[in-house]
Amino acid sequence: MTAEAAPMNRPRVGLLTSIKRLADRYLLMTYTSLAVIYLLLPVAVIILFSFNDPIGRRNFVWQRFSLDAWLNPLGVPGLGESVWLSLVIAFVSTLFATMIGTLMALALVRYEFRGKSLTNSLIFLPMATPEIVMGASLLTLFVSIGNPPFFPLNIVTILIAHILFNISYVVVTVRARLVGFPRHLEEAAMDLGANEWVTFWRVTFPLILPGIVAAALLAFSLSIDDFVITNFSAGQTQTFPMFIYAQARVGVPVQVYVIGSIIFLVAVISVGLTTLAGRRQSSG
C-alpha cells in the first residue's frame, strides 16, 4: 500500500471498455423492452379497442373513447350463448382431463407395466398432431361410428375432443412434477400409520397440487380458445371462438374485445395467484 500504488486501483478506461460498459447497461434493457412490447402489443390493442366507439361494424379504426361495450358486454345476439358454452366446455373438459391425466401420470411414473414406454411416447401424439388433422380425423370418427342419422355433433362431441387433447397436456405437466417427487415421503406416511388412501390425500396430493393446478389452468386456456378441432366436432353448436370467426367476415363487434380483455385479465390474475401460492409453499 504505497502512495504510487493507489492510482493503479483505478485502471484507465479505454474506448472499447466504455463502449462495452454502455452496451452492458443499455443494450440488454432495450432488447428486453422491445421483446416485451412485441409480446404485449396485440393484447394492448384488444384492450384499447374494447373502449372504442366504431362507426359501422368495423372496429379497426380508433374513433373515440366509449364505455358502451363494457357496460353491455353481451349485447350482441348469440355472443352470450357462445361465451357461456365455451366456459362450460372449458370447465367440464378441464375437470375430466385433469382427473384422468393426473391418474395417468401417477400410473406412468409410479408403476412398471407392459407397454409403459409406449404409452409414454404415445401421450405426445395428440400434441404433435396438427390440429387440423386431428379435427378432420375426429370428424371422420364421429361420422363413421353412427349409422345415419350420424353420431350427432354437439356439445358432447366437442367435450370428447377437448378432453382428448387436454389429457396429453395434463399428463405431461403433472408427470414433470411427479418425477422429482420424493417417494420416501410416502413411505414415511405409511410408516406412521397412513394407508394408501390417506397417504395420497395427506402427502402426495398436497405436494403435487401445484402441478395439478398448473395443468388445469393450461387445459382450461387450451379449451376455451380452441377453434380448429372444435370447428370440426361442433356441428351446429357455436363456441366463442367460432362466434368470433363467423362475425369476422362482417366485422367483429366491440363486445368481443371486451370479452377478450376479461379473459386476459382472468388469466393474468390466476397465473399471479398460482405463482404467489407456489412461492408461499416453497418458502415454507
Binding site: 420424493p182 415421503l185 413411505e187 414415511a188 410408516d191 406412521l192 394407508n195 402427502v203 405436494l207
Partner: peptide
C-alpha cells in the same frame, strides 16, 4: 407398513415439507 408396530427414522429424515 401401516399395520406394523414399528417406526422408522429415515436417513434423509423424510419430513413432510408442507
Amino acid at each position: 407398513a401401516y399395520q406394523r408396530n414399528v417406526n422408522t427414522v429415515f436417513q434423509n429424515y423424510a419430513l413432510f415439507p408442507h
